[in-house]
Amino acid sequence: MATEYANSSEYIAHHLTNLTYGRFPDGTWGWAHGADDIASMGFYAIHVDTMFWSSFLGIIFLGIFTLAARSATAGVPGHLQNFCEYLVEFVEDNITQVFGTRPNAIIGPLSLTILVWVFLMNLMDLVPVDFIPYGAALAGIPYMKVVSTTDPNATLGMSIGVFFLVLYYNLKMKGPIGFGAGFFTHPIPSIWAAPFNLLLEIVDLIAKPLSHGLRLFGNLYAGEMIFILIALLYGGGIVLGLLGGVMQWAWAVFHILIIALQAFVFMILTIVYLTQAHEVHDDH
């Protein structure tokens, strides 16, 4: 894999293609050697780098919290325990504010996982663009996209997972009839407005997971794209290189806020959607 790039668009294109393993049109499975290969693979294309980095960071998240849980003492808490307790209490406060204290086995762990896991995946965006892909290129791996939340499959996968959970709780709490009737009676309770209601409710139901996942993707993808464009400056001599360094530092500092905010918003919206699924108010 040549690490010299003919022009800037090839550099950008390289940093945007995933390491993909999939089924070629002729039926053989293999590594894709370029964006056109990935396109030809269609559905049967697995973004190996996204899968690797997201599960790697997930294991790190589980490891940290398991370690903290196992070494938890009622006495003087250590740093790790303080850190984990702070996060758990932060998530717990947000849940009680929005969701209340209804018994629910899944919303606590789910929110903590989403907050920390999405934050960790976003955090990879602060690693300078060329560090890991260059190391991977030396090791013979042609493409490496480090930030898994810049892959729409990952973010939409999470939001669709939350969407199934919302459907499950809707059916469980309101029952199929209650849930189905809701499509015709909300938001305008009169019978004549039923078709209009149905249209509105269907659009609302679909828009929630879509905007939930694409918001995270859009933020991280735009952020990474700007990092790549700044990285292009390094190839333009000493003056542009220094300018690139300053801009990379400035954008990284600002990006820290975006990373934390998007992980927080992804969690809050998950809680809000689950709360809406539990709303059983027969007001008419």
């Binding site: 668009s9 950008i12 294109a13 945007l16 293609t17 964006a35 905007s211 694409l214 918001r215 993707f217 859009g218 933020n219 993808y221 735009a222 794209m225 905010l261 998007q262 927080f264 918003v265 809050i268």
Partner: peptide
């Protein structure tokens, strides 16, 4: 403020994401 800022920002940033994807990728 931050929650509603992210909600207001949702569609424009999705538009930015899609347009960057269209232009570069």
């Amino acid at each position: 403020l931050f929650i509603s800022l992210a909600l207001v920002d949702a569609v424009p940033i999705i538009a930015v994401g899609i347009s960057l994807y269209m232009i570069f990728a």
